[in-house]
Simulated scan of single mutants.
Amino acid sequence: MIIEQFVAKTPRLTAQLAAVLLAITGPVSGAKAQSYPNKPITIIVGFAPGGLMDTVSRLFGERLSAKLGQPVVVENRGGANGNIAHRRVASAEPDGYTILGATPTLAVNETIYPHRRGYSADQFKTVAIVASSPEMISTHPANAKTLKEFLDSARSTSAQFGTAGTGSMSHIAIQYFFEKLADLPTTHIPFQGGAPAVSAALGNQIPLVAAPPASGAASSVRSGGLRGLAVASEKRLSILPDVPTFAELGYPNFTSLVWAGFFVPANTPAEATATLSKAIGEILKEQPILARLEQIGFEPIFLDQESSEKLFRSDISKWKNMIDAIGLKIE
């Protein structure tokens, strides 16, 4: 009888003991199994392979994979000026496994697509903004030798310039410069991407191309295929020391930077966001990464997560002001 009573009570005692131990130690093995990240991560890019953001995403994705111990895949979802990729990430599970690799297009689209985006900037949280490349205008060596010469020759007709497309940052910034600062009418020539626009300038098929150095324009200027007339940065670029800034040429208030950044859905857990931000910050300090960024025309941006978020939010207002000033409407 005593033995039977003991056996009957044992399961209850065992359950009570287990509960006490769990309260003291916590679910250790479960936490380890579920710690972030524990499965592959996807970076969604809204532009074609080989483009500015695609290059940066693959560069950082490879190092993220090594640091976090999980595969990092870059997936290109081009179209609609980035909106397809933006929608994909905005509606993704907010778990840190779907990241958006984005340029200021994410900020620009808040204004030029007020009704048909299918998402809002408030649906994103900035993880890190890692590098920037200023807008630059370049021409074939047979054409104008200086910005002043180009402006003087354009006054009798219009400032004709090619860009990566209607609504691109280059389109908005340079049309704003010509119309509002240089007081010139413009003729915009849109292309299907930055590379075709640069190629057209190399062939002297267009008078001027507006494209950041990181879009491929830097290598063309360095090789002598194009002449850089001005860059929209506060100081000259180390890789293009002979190209003056707009400020040097009499336009001190004109700067325009195209940055590369990483974003996640707004409700992504803080643990995942912090892990990504920390890892990306560490990668940005690696010498081979810095050398590669400089080689393709980027300058690193050393900002923490909070400062990156502030930069993104301020850019929404900055681009809206320029878009409204030139009266650009796409829909």
Rank of each mutant, 00 (worst) to 15 (best):
P37T: 00
T255W: 10
G101E: 06
S314L: 14
P71Q: 00
A214P: 09
T111G: 15
T163L: 08
W259I: 09
I326Y: 09
S307E: 12
F298V: 00
E282Y: 00
G327Y: 11
Q123F: 12
T187L: 05
G51E: 09
G30A: 14
S308L: 14
G50C: 11
K285I: 13
Q16M: 14
S120A: 13
S223C: 02
T98M: 05
A291P: 04
S120L: 12
P40L: 00
A33S: 11
E149S: 14
S156V: 06
R227Y: 07
N83P: 11
G228L: 03
E234C: 03
Y119T: 05
P104C: 06
N76M: 15
N76A: 12
L240V: 03
A15T: 15
P212G: 06
E248H: 06
E62R: 02
K278P: 08
M136F: 05
N267C: 04
Q16V: 05
I206R: 13
L240R: 09
P265E: 03
E4M: 11
A19L: 04
I174N: 06
F60S: 02
V209P: 03
D324T: 14
L276I: 05
E282W: 01
N81P: 04
T255N: 12
M1V: 13
K125W: 14
G228R: 03
S158D: 06
L100W: 05
L13V: 15
V209I: 11
S29R: 12
A274C: 08
L208W: 06
P11C: 15
Q5Y: 13
D54W: 02
Q287K: 03
K320S: 09
L276T: 05
V221I: 08
W319Q: 14
G261L: 09
G96N: 05
K320Q: 10
L106Y: 01
T275V: 04
G96D: 05
L293I: 13
A232L: 14
H171R: 08
S153M: 08
I316C: 12
F191H: 07
L240A: 03
E286T: 01
V127E: 00
P104S: 07
Y113N: 10
F47K: 10
K329S: 07
L284D: 07
F302C: 01
A197Q: 11
P40T: 00
I129W: 01
K235G: 09
M1Q: 10
L202H: 07
E75M: 10
T245G: 01
R227P: 12
S168V: 03
L184I: 02
E286I: 02
P104Y: 05
T55L: 13
R77W: 02
I323H: 12
L303R: 04
